[in-house]
Amino acid sequence: MSTNHVVPAKTYVYIFLALIGLTLATTEIAKVDLGWANTPVAFLIAGSKTLLVVLFFMHMKWSSYKMKVVAASGLVWLVLLFAFTVGDYATRDWIAVPGPWPQHPPASAAFDSSHPASVPSPPVAEHQP
């Protein structure tokens, strides 16, 4: 357990300075246009700050394996919630599977508008506004 493990004050101050540094970094990086990379980078910085706080300030580094599993389970379930919900929204625009398997030949050029005959049906559940 995290009993009676005393961390030197210096370590806490170093961690604190690292956190401040990361905060300034994320603020500055947000001002630079990295296209699609902006969000992942901001997320990465926030994640690393969280890791620092959890491992050092919350003594997870010296805690038992059980505590690590409890904390990790929260993260895993959060990812589950995100994965399936965002998964639904992301696949809403996909066209429905091209018909029952045996008779219906899969449309060769799904999006080729030159010969509309082969265009498969519009998606069953249209994208909401």
């Binding site: 639904d88 996909w94 599977v97 069953v124 559940a125």
Partner: peptide, 10 residues
């Protein structure tokens, strides 16, 4: 109104 693929996985 769920997407076809999401319905498949669920």
């Amino acid at each position: 109104g769920e997407s076809v693929y999401s319905a498949l996985s669920f």
